[in-house]
Amino acid sequence: MPRYLTFVIALFISWSANSMEMSIPKEVTSTVASAVPASAAMPLQSPAVPKRGALYKVRHDGKTSYLFGTIHVGKQGFFPLEPEVTRALADSSALVLELDTRIHKPFEQALAKYGSYPAGDSITRHLSPGALAQLTKALDKAGLALQNVAMYRPWLVANILVGTEIEKHGYHRSNGVEGFLLTAAAQQKKQVHELESADYQLSLFASLDDAQQERYLVENLEDLENGRAVQKSAGLIDAWSNADAARIDVMARELTSGDSVSATFMDRTLLGKRNPEMAAHIERIMQSDQVAFVGIGLLHLVGDNGIPALLRQRGYDVEKVY
């Protein structure tokens, strides 16, 4: 069964690229650009723009909101978004995201709290000799020194390595959808609300003990070595860029299937725990007078436990626009 790819966390966790730069040495983040894409300044509508992601219209008690599946990494050519998306945003009174990635300090604090060891501790004390040897080999290949990441926990080191490799193939956090939406919302003078907090998002990784974190790291190092990290991440991003619902469904099942630590964490925590919480929060938003445009990681919208399905269970009329 294909292993979960750490970089795909970027489809679920709205990490701030600027905060990563502030919190992690320059040698580790040299390929990470700013959080807002230059393409966000482009006109909001353009002829013949392809459909991307997935868009839903949600109605209840005479009120309407929108759900849009985002990716937190991408290419500059992904913008502007499809006119139906930009019209839905224009018709909304507020933009709702997992996190407002323009706000850096809470993310920095959460990263230090959950991603770093206390002073005097090191990843070398928490990995078996075999795992440490694999990590050293991967760092050498990436052009990084162990001493530059030794203070970080295995889950964060795995994310750094896989993210760095994917960025070499042209996918950047600086071209994530959130930046485009935030810039558009600012131009339209809309309120911006968060579904979660940086502390909560990164605290999810604290549920992994040392043994699980080592396995999580090793699984992703193996995916880097055999090329799956690029193959699977690029495939999922491509499915988003073409609004390929069938392919997105297939990949979602692959990413959450099997008994690996990574797949189990994805299935039970990144999706299984967060989706009901997000659905409840969206319901509270819709009970107010706001017409909300909710942009959340693409795979939160997929399957019987996806947010559209959960809202239908709560009595909401959920129409898939595309």
Rank of each mutant, 00 (worst) to 15 (best):
E108F: 08
A112I: 03
A112E: 09
K113V: 04
K113G: 04
Y114T: 08
S116G: 00
S116P: 00
S116A: 14
P118N: 08
P118V: 03
P118K: 09
S122A: 13
I123V: 15
R125T: 05
H126Y: 13
S128I: 15
S128E: 09
P129S: 02
G130K: 09
A131M: 03
A131L: 09
L132C: 03
L132V: 03
L132S: 01
A133Y: 03
A133R: 09
Q134W: 09
L135P: 05
L135D: 03
T136S: 13
T136W: 04
T136I: 14
K137T: 15
A138W: 10
D140E: 14
A142I: 10
L144G: 06
L146F: 12
L146W: 02
N148R: 11
V149Y: 00
A150F: 00
A150C: 05
A150T: 02
M151C: 12
R153S: 07
W155D: 06
L156P: 03
V157C: 10
A158D: 02
A158R: 05
N159F: 14
N159Y: 12
I160A: 11
I160M: 14
I160H: 08
L161T: 08
T164A: 09
E165L: 12
E165T: 10
E165I: 06
E167A: 15
K168W: 07
G170N: 07
G170A: 06
G170W: 04
H172K: 12
R173G: 15
N175L: 07
N175I: 07
G176E: 05
V177H: 06
V177F: 13
G179P: 02
F180Y: 15
A184D: 01
A185S: 14
A185Y: 01
A186R: 11
Q187N: 10
Q188W: 04
Q188D: 02
K189Y: 00
K190Y: 01
Q191F: 02
Q191P: 00
